[in-house]
Each structure stands twice: as structure tokens, then as C-alpha cells.
Design a protein around this nucleic acid. Structure first.
Lengths: 347, 347
DNA sequence: CTGAAAGCGCTTACAG
DNA sequence: CTGAAAGCGCTTACAG
């Protein structure tokens, strides 16, 4: 069964077929002009007949090392549309530079992240973009110290002296919350990603800040953090909304949470009475009733900006590490403009 | 500005620091037992201090070639959740095998596809998975002839002797259409991807087959093919539904088309009167009103099956090329069960 | 215009 | 247990 793949032809094979030296073949392959017409034709023919394709790895190895024409991207979950849109943005810039991108999901698991970045380094990518808090990863830390081109995307490392591109998590959550407050709400719950994740912490901070600005004391029991699937969030939020005196509005700080909440509100039949603002835009968010008001990140743009930064770093023209924070707009669609019931309206 | 990256330490550097030969360092790096305790400790220390990381490319080059520990995946658009879910499935299997995956979007552009596969080959991936009809791509054809491990995913090449994994496009579309027929519809429109795309052709074929089975003659003016964004489809479908005597039901043969149609139906206020069945499941498809009845492919599974096939091929245990076709279930949610108006009901 | 030598970073045989 | 030689597929200097 195990039929070994025939060895790929090398320059030597081509040279043999064309009756010349492999160095001359190299000249033809690289388009160097100094080859006579007759020989050139003979070599070209041999290349075509043997199906010769130069080995990029060997070429680059000899050329002196660093450049492999590949960048890495360690993200949380490529099946999450937010991350796949980041990847698409990165890819667009990579193509322009003639680069390929290695992508891998970490599921926010530090061990898997370490392993992935190890693999990137072993394969000598020219640089990588990573969605990571960077705290627990020894390989990453070592590469940063060494000066390997690295750009942090979406999240931000504790050690600040690195290139970072992300949305204004705090400002976005503050905007979401103050939007609800401006529509009369004072009892607002917050559902966010695992609080070990930097962006989730910042978003919770923004939520609290907006409450405080409005003279409302944040209640710890109104803040729920965790890493769950949309169906899990559906159950969690349904429970929260059907226990004791429920909040009159909710902030859902991530796309899967927003989806779970959309289900939960309908499970309870309160989609027209409990207000919701979500983080991240979602397909059909403007088709459901009411439409879901969201803070809309622009993930393809985030990806492009991060990639441009990385390629500048690779080219050595990036200068000092920079932190780029993109503002996020709020899109009104209905769910965020629902007022609280009369009895619970603020003055 | 352009501060050159310090050269990575090599085995020679480590050997020099530890006062030994680089061959002995190689032994330590590869965990070969035959190194004495004292030397081993000294080398280990030097490795840590210099931050030495073996160069996988050089290692594999010397080992004899083929294996790079990387596979490629050429897909249409990673920002489309269908394809990113395929990627996630592939990735899961790749991780198990210790592989990394190079992913790239082609936008169904043959030139870009060619370029991408060229790049895969130049970097000597051990094999690749490709969403391609494979007709126009010379590099792909050459690699197939050569016996490079390749698996076709979602689409299928004209030359049949290749491994293929895809959903039952024809059966799915037939199911969608006959479902609508069983609810009384006889005038059903079909909106599908560019008809140069194999799956779109098959789905249209399934639609026609179901009509014929019911004794209905398919009308060419009820079939619209094209490669468009969701907003573009929205306009196209809105036009179709507001011209002359509109169909009483529609089949939307791809996720972006389904989203566009959901908007179009609501633009015209006919979401409760015109029936719809879509291909591909979508977030919130069960939250909109009515819920959208869909033919649900299982993209992570498609990805996993394709990847397992590829790794069997790489291992040389795959045997003859095989065509794997996964059945697709229909999920009733409301939109597909709307009856036609009395006046247009079938006997 | 063409080629023989040396070497990129590593491993595979072969000696001591 | 340790090392000197040869070579993976290619390019970079150096000769003719």
C-alpha cells in the first residue's frame, strides 16, 4: 500500500538531463542573464519535462537564514468569525508582501499557545502575530527579548514594550453601558469572557466606569465572567434573568455571549422588555426582532493594521514599539434603545 | 532605524560556549542517550543561556526531504464561516499529527489559486487540501500527476482519480426543494453561487431534479447564479421577488445568499408569506422570525475527514483514491414550512 | 558565458 | 562516550 512518493527532481537532475552543470541551472532558475540562448532553451526544456520546482527552504537557508517568507498567527479559535476575519485581514497584507501565513488556534490554552509558538520558531517564521496576554508563555517571552518581530493583536501583554493593535475595549464597553444608561437603565448586568483575558477585564472596567459616572455603584453580582460556548451562555443568562429581581438591561461583551443572550431573552419572552447591547457585530443582528444594538469592531482592519506593523518590523523600519488602539462605533438597532419598565426608570 | 536582528545561535555557537563539538550538541538536542552527565549539563546550560532553538528546516533538509511538518489549505475565503469551520476541523487533525497548517484564500480566482499552490510547493508542504475545481490550475495538475498528497474538499476536480470529501450537494438541494414542494409550492426560485463552481451546479441540478420528480418543468428564469456579497444578493433577490409574478418559495444555496435573502424578504415584508430553505446553517437562524429552515452541512466534520484522508495519504496507507460524500440533514425552523397563498396552491 | 569550490544548519553514517 | 567527514538542495563568492 505504502507507495513511496518519487523523489522530487533537484537541480542536479535537471543539469544531468540538460548536459550541463547544476550551477548553470541555478542561473536559469533565478533568471540571471548570463546564459547562452541554446543552453538556456535546453535547460528550460529539462525543467519542464522533469517538473522541476526549486526548494525554497534550501535556497533561503543558503541565503543566510532569517527570511522564510512565512509569518505565524496564533489566535484563539479560527471557527469564531471574529478571529477568522482578523486572519483574513492579515492574509491580505501578507499576500502583498509575497508571504504565506501559518494559522493556529490556541483555545486560550497557555500550553497549546506555547506549543504553537515553539512550532513557529522551529520553522523560523519571519515574525508572528499573536492573540495572547503573553504572561505565561516562556517561548514568547524569550522571542520578545531576542527581538523577533511580534505584534500583539486584540489583547496586550503585561510587558508593555511591544507592538500592539487592538480595539478600544474599555471605551467600547463604556459606550455600550452609557448608551443603556441614557435610555434610563440603572440596573445593568455584564456578561464577559474569562476575566484572565485582558480584553474581558478592560471591558468590565469600562462597564463599571460608565455606571460610576452616572452615580450608580457597580454590583459584583451583576458581573459574570467565563469561557463558554453560545449554548452555555444561553443557559447562564437565562438563569441570571429569571432569578430574584432581574436587571433591566444587559451588556454582552463578546459575539458568542451575544448569541447566547439573544436565545435566552427569547426563551423568557423578554426580548422586547430587557435591553441588550453586544460587543461584535453578527450576521442577522439586524434581521432579528428587535435588531441587536452592538459595538462593532472592525476585525479585518485590525488584522491589516497588525500585519502592516509586523512587516514594518520585519523590514526594520518600525521604530519604537507602538500601541495602536482603534475606536469602536455603536450601531443602534433597537435592542439597546428599549427603556426600562416605568417602575424602575431612573429620574 | 533598521536594526538588524541578531543572528540566531546555531549548534556551533552552543558547542563553542560549552567547549565541545557541535555533533555532541546535536546529540543532546535530539535526546540521544550517549552523552556523559557532566558534558550534558554544560551543554544544556549553554543552550538555555544562548536561547538556542534548532532549525527545523535544516534538520528536515538533511533528513532527506519530503517531510516539512506543514500542510497547506487553499480555500475560497477564510472570512466566510463555512470555510473557517473547515479550517478548524483540519487544524484539529493536524495538531494530533504535530503538523502546522498554511491557510490561504483564493476568492475562487484561478490565478490566485495557482499562485498559492505554487507557494505551497515551493515551501515543500507535505500535502495540501484544496477547495478547487482543479480544471484551470496547471501547478495543481502537475502535483496530482506527480502523486503529491492532495485532497479535494467541498468541490471536486474534473479528473476523478483524486481523494475527495464533500457534502451531498445534489441530495441536499433536492431535499430543500422537495421539502418546499411537499408544503404545496410549485413555483420555486433558486439562487446559487457562480455556475462555474461545481457545487453550485450540483445544487442547481438537485433543485431541478426535485421539480421534475414532482412533475414541474424547471424554468430557467427562476435560476440565478453568481458570485456576490450578502448585500448584493439582497438587492438581486429583492428585485427578483418584486418583478412580474414572483415565486412562492426560494432556495438559497449558500450562506451569504441566505443572509441576503433574509434581508430581501423583510425589505418587502414577505418573510411570512414567501417560503425559504437555505444551504448552510447560520448564527441566529433560529432566532429570526420565522426561523430559517436550512440544509445543515457539518463543516468541522468535513475538515476532519479531509485531513484524516490527507494524513493517510502522506503516511502512504491511503490506498486508492476515494470519494467521500457526507449526507446533509434538513432542519425545520419555520421559513421552509410556509404554505403558498391559496390561489397558487398545488393540487 | 560556464563551472568547481565552499558553506547555510543540521543529521547520517563511520571512526576512534 | 565523542568527533571528523560527507551531504541534504541550494546560492555566494572566485576562477577560468
Amino acid at each position: 500500500m505504502s507507495s513511496a512518493l518519487p523523489r522530487r527532481p533537484t537541480m542536479r537532475d535537471v543539469a544531468l538531463a540538460a548536459g550541463t552543470s547544476f550551477k548553470t541551472v541555478s542561473r536559469v532558475v533565478n533568471g540571471e542573464p548570463a546564459v547562452s540562448g541554446e543552453l538556456l532553451a535546453r535547460i528550460q526544456l529539462a525543467i519542464d519535462e522533469l517538473g522541476y520546482r526549486p526548494d525554497d527552504r534550501a535556497r533561503r537557508l543558503r541565503q543566510g537564514g532569517t527570511q522564510t517568507g512565512v509569518i505565524g498567527f496564533a489566535l484563539v479559535d479560527v471557527a469564531n468569525p471574529f478571529f477568522s476575519a482578523l486572519l483574513r485581514g492579515i492574509e491580505e497584507v501578507a499576500v502583498k508582501h509575497g508571504y504565506l501565513v501559518l494559522a493556529g488556534s490556541t483555545d486560550a490554552n497557555p500550553a497549546r499557545e506555547n506549543q504553537l509558538i515553539d512550532a513557529f520558531v522551529a520553522r523560523r517564521v519571519d515574525g508572528f502575530i499573536v492573540v495572547s496576554s503573553g504572561t505565561e508563555n516562556s517561548t514568547l517571552r524569550a522571542e520578545l527579548l531576542r527581538g523577533t518581530p511580534v505584534v500583539f493583536l486584540d489583547l496586550e501583554p503585561e510587558l508593555r514594550s511591544s507592538d500592539t493593535v487592538r480595539s478600544d475595549h474599555l471605551g467600547g464597553a463604556r459606550l455600550a453601558t452609557s448608551h443603556l444608561i441614557s435610555h434610563g437603565h440603572r440596573d445593568i448586568a455584564f456578561f464577559g469572557d474569562d476575566d484572565r483575558v485582558f480584553s474581558a477585564t478592560l471591558r468590565a472596567e469600562g462597564y463599571r466606569g460608565a455606571l460610576r459616572d452616572a452615580g450608580v455603584t457597580p454590583r459584583p453580582d451583576r458581573v459574570v465572567h467565563g469561557r463558554h460556548s453560545a449554548p452555555e451562555w444561553r443557559a447562564i443568562i437565562r438563569d441570571h434573568l429569571s432569578t430574584g429581581k432581574p436587571p433591566t438591561a444587559i451588556v454582552t461583551a463578546q459575539n458568542f455571549i451575544t448569541i447566547g443572550a439573544a436565545h435566552a431573552l427569547r426563551d423568557l419572552g423578554v426580548q422586547h422588555t430587557v435591553a441588550q447591547v453586544g460587543f461584535d457585530d453578527i450576521d442577522l443582528a439586524d434581521v432579528v426582532e428587535p435588531g441587536i444594538t452592538v459595538i462593532a469592531q472592525d476585525p479585518p482592519r485590525l488584522g491589516r493594521v497588525a500585519a502592516e506593523r509586523l512587516f514594518a518590523r520585519i523590514a526594520g523600519t518600525a521604530g519604537k514599539p507602538r500601541r495602536r488602539i482603534l475606536t469602536v462605533p455603536l450601531i443602534e438597532r433597537g435592542s439597546g434603545e428599549i427603556p426600562p419598565p416605568r417602575s424602575r426608570r431612573s429620574p
